[in-house]
Amino acid sequence: MTLTDIAIQNLRRRKGRTLFLLLTFILVVGITVALNSLAKGMQDDLQKSLAQYGANLVITPKSEHFTLSYGGLSVPGVNYELNHLDYDSVAKLNNNPELMLNGIAPKLIGSAAGTTDPYLIIGVDFTSELKMKPWWHIDGNLPGENEVIIGSGLARKENLVIGNTLELNYRSYSIVGVMQETGGSEDNGVFTKFETARSITGIDSWSMIELNTAQPTKAAALLTELLPGAKVSELSQLVQGSKESVDRFSNVSLITSILLGLIGALIVFVTMTGSINDRTTEIGIFRAIGFRRQHILSILIREAFFVSLCGGFFGYLLGGLAPAFLAPITFQKSMSFEFHPLIALTVISASVIIGVVSTLLPARRAIHLDPLEALSSI
């Protein structure tokens, strides 16, 4: 019979204590994995929401403002030294991987004379714009050359429908679509392709560039250096409060995991100490029939190893499956079980280390027992 067989037989004989230790490891590892899986799932979901919500950075031409004051009373001033966003600005942004862009939507904004009132002209790349603004819904088709889309407010105001024409700077443009109401300035705008907007307004530079990036604060600092003639504004999104809550939950999960590890180590230590106290006679017999100290130590370590290994494995499975049931109830989000080999290896290894290290001190006491003193208790 090998030392491993002896260790396994000892675990089988003490089913109650073995089951208690096994459940301890399963619960400690399971709760740790579940909490961190929920935190990671919430972070991934938040990142996906950030990518789909819209722009979190806006780049506009930088200008200096001169304010007039008469007797302490300020009156509207004027802008001077107005810079421009050249067309190569978009290429600079796309070619910089440090910005971690999820989307980019440049705009060309100007005005054009109409039959009675001027119109707001907005030139966009519809593919990029619709990706960044999923709440935009267009009835009709996307515009081609010399074609436009109008906002719902403008359509109601002037009683325009798809198929009509709109006169802009004394030229007629076909209306091929109507944007559904958004509640913003888009409702009164005229949207078209860059080339058409450029020919209508005569503007030869970007009026605004909207960005969605994974790290807006870091990107804003990089953009200030990359585009010195531009003003970079970081937008406060509705999901910002959710981000702070997710960060707090992640920190709580980390602290809880550390505390659970310490509690698990204490439980193993106390349980193994009690087990060794109850096995004084058995250890004395082992020593009397020729077992050396390292043999006794090896048996005790192997017992802790097997229990902690099984507990870590089943704990990981429990912790991985738990978020699939808890997330819809707790966070109104759906999560599915995903096997991550690296995470599994990490938590199982941590479980084994906690089990073995917590056993070393009581095991050290066991191997220094005097065989005669142990046998005297028979």
Results as ranks from 00 to 15, higher is better:
172 S>L: 08
80 Y>W: 04
179 M>L: 15
156 R>H: 06
94 N>P: 01
144 G>W: 01
74 S>R: 09
118 P>Q: 05
120 L>A: 10
139 D>M: 12
165 T>Y: 15
120 L>G: 02
178 V>M: 07
183 G>S: 00
121 I>E: 02
166 L>F: 01
138 I>P: 04
75 V>L: 15
156 R>D: 10
193 K>Q: 10
71 G>F: 12
173 Y>V: 13
189 G>V: 10
115 T>S: 13
114 G>V: 14
108 L>H: 09
138 I>H: 05
67 T>M: 15
157 K>S: 05
100 M>S: 12
82 L>M: 05
116 T>G: 11
137 H>T: 11
92 K>E: 13
68 L>A: 11
193 K>G: 13
103 G>T: 01
187 D>P: 07
189 G>Q: 07
181 E>I: 12
175 I>P: 00
93 L>F: 02
192 T>K: 08
128 S>T: 14
124 V>W: 13
174 S>M: 08
136 W>F: 12
140 G>S: 06
100 M>I: 05
181 E>G: 00
104 I>L: 15
159 N>T: 04
126 F>K: 03
75 V>K: 06
159 N>L: 13
127 T>G: 03
129 E>W: 07
168 L>E: 02
133 K>Y: 05
69 S>Y: 14
171 R>C: 09
77 G>S: 10
163 G>Y: 10
123 G>E: 04
85 L>Q: 07
110 G>P: 07
134 P>K: 00
119 Y>K: 08
129 E>C: 07
74 S>M: 03
102 N>L: 08
84 H>F: 09
177 G>T: 03
159 N>G: 06
172 S>A: 06
171 R>K: 13
110 G>K: 14
192 T>L: 07
109 I>L: 11
172 S>E: 13
128 S>H: 07
166 L>R: 07
110 G>E: 01
79 N>L: 14
110 G>L: 06
157 K>G: 11
136 W>S: 08
123 G>L: 02
174 S>A: 13
141 N>I: 00
74 S>F: 08
119 Y>W: 12
171 R>W: 10
187 D>Q: 11
186 E>L: 15
141 N>H: 04
152 S>K: 12
86 D>W: 00
108 L>S: 08
91 A>Q: 14
129 E>I: 15
79 N>C: 01
101 L>Y: 00
156 R>L: 09
191 F>K: 00
164 N>G: 06
73 L>Q: 09
140 G>L: 13
168 L>S: 01
111 S>H: 10
180 Q>E: 14
78 V>D: 12
123 G>F: 08
151 G>I: 06
78 V>E: 15
171 R>A: 10
183 G>F: 06
179 M>N: 12
172 S>N: 11
113 A>M: 15
147 E>T: 02
76 P>G: 01
67 T>C: 11
193 K>H: 10
154 L>Y: 01
93 L>E: 01
192 T>Q: 11
85 L>S: 02
98 E>R: 11
97 P>C: 09
85 L>Y: 03
130 L>W: 08
107 K>D: 03
141 N>S: 06
76 P>W: 04
82 L>I: 08
139 D>A: 11
113 A>D: 09
77 G>L: 09
125 D>C: 04
175 I>Y: 03
75 V>D: 04
143 P>L: 05
191 F>V: 10
122 I>N: 12
81 E>G: 08
69 S>T: 07
151 G>P: 01
77 G>I: 14
